[in-house]
Nucleic acid binder design. Structure first.
Lengths: 212, 212
DNA sequence: TTCGCTTAGTGATAGTTTGCACAATCACAA
DNA sequence: TTGTGATTGTGCAAACTATCACTAAGCGAA
């Protein structure tokens, strides 16, 4: 496959399409149109077609896209055909909740293990898995080769966690920490920013009041 | 204040600036430059100045921005000077974790209450707060006037939860549910999409392998 | 087959966002 | 007061993104 350079927004949308396709598959549908995908994802059908056409011609004029084939193709593009393991750093309430709630309905990710540096927590269970001491992280990362790490440590320790992960060879991180983290260029860091989402909601709510 | 029409991206960045400013305040700094804000948020200083100049001239050439004043101004713009209450629908692991972990370090949001429809859970504690029956939601929303609701229910029940909230008068929702939700135009819905973030990370990781 | 209907793929266009670069302005020191 | 160094606010160009609207192609019925 040719590695096309494409925007992050487009990749996010591919992820949404994949989710819709999985649902359509469950419903037993075998064909889906750009219009249906668009409605499900809240965008225009032209956007859907454009996103998909970047990578090839997956559809058939007059009918639409084969659900199974398109899903396979998108998972190929995303690389989620054989998804990497996910580990969690920090067995606080958020870390444990992620572990327990699992990732059902996603591309097939599974939480492999969870770590903490608090001796009192080590050995306890989060769902099925026991909390492991943090020094075992590098071993796990080396074994798995490819790992996405979720940082769910308490405020202020995010940067330390990141550095430990990077040293161990991890290059994909999803952080729930509030603070912005610094990482080398070859490491991709993304954030789940609950507080920013709340700010955006507040802004929109208050703006409406002003306008009305 | 004039209600300027502005992009969501810009609002998100304002939220980040606010966070940086709070940290700077804690560190005891009284002046901050666009360059410092930019470095902290991982963007260019021109972007910072542009975002801020949309709403007024908050800075002083030659020195920078007064930390306190700028923070007040941004909180005014976002509407977070007096932030709305946040309620949680769904006392599963994620809902409870949010309640427990709290919102320290944010604009000052507090989780007001948490609801579930499972009789077995009602009355139990999530941190300080007892889980309340779901039929009390509309009462709470009416009392508070302005509420942001976090949907953290199990897969498949997201739409039901949303409709109940909308009926009760809530018009700002943050959903952790996987499925895309349908809502009236006057209701703002945002999503925390852990699985999409993982997909984006996987894509970036796998793309690097191909290129190298 | 042929016609009419549906839908994918895409060139062109309009709209947004970003980044550069510089004039205007301020603080401060001599 | 005058000169120097720093930093803001912004015009402009370039890059990027979304949208329209059309062509080409497939499907099914008569």
């Amino acid at each position: 496959m040719i590695a096309v350079k494409v925007s992050e927004k487009s990749i996010r949308r591919l992820s949404h399409y994949a989710r819709c396709l999985r649902l359509a598959k469950i419903r037993g549908e075998s064909i889906i149109t750009s219009q249906e995908l668009a409605t499900n994802c809240g965008i225009s059908s032209a956007a859907v077609r454009r996103d998909l056409s970047i990578y090839g011609e997956f559809g058939k004029q007059g009918s639409g896209y084969k659900v199974d084939d398109l899903l396979v193709n998108i998972e190929n593009i995303l690389g989620t055909t054989d998804p990497p393991s996910v580990i969690i750093v920090g067995a606080g309430s958020i870390g444990c909740a992620l572990m327990i709630s699992g990732l059902a309905g996603t591309a097939g990710y599974t939480y492999d293990s969870i770590f903490d540096n608090d001796p009192a927590k080590i050995g306890r269970y989060c769902g099925e898995k026991q909390i492991r001491p943090i020094d075992e992280i590098s071993e796990v990362i080396r074994d798995k080769k490819e790992v996405i790490a979720v940082i769910a440590v308490s405020s202020g320790s995010g940067q330390d966690a990141l550095e430990m992960l990077v040293d161990a060879g991890c290059n994909a991180i999803l952080s729930f920490a509030l603070e912005p983290l610094k990482a080398p260029d070859n490491v991709e860091v993304r954030y789940v920013e609950v507080s920013t989402e709340l700010d955006v909601l507040t802004h929109s709510m208050r703006r409406k009041e002003r306008v009305n």
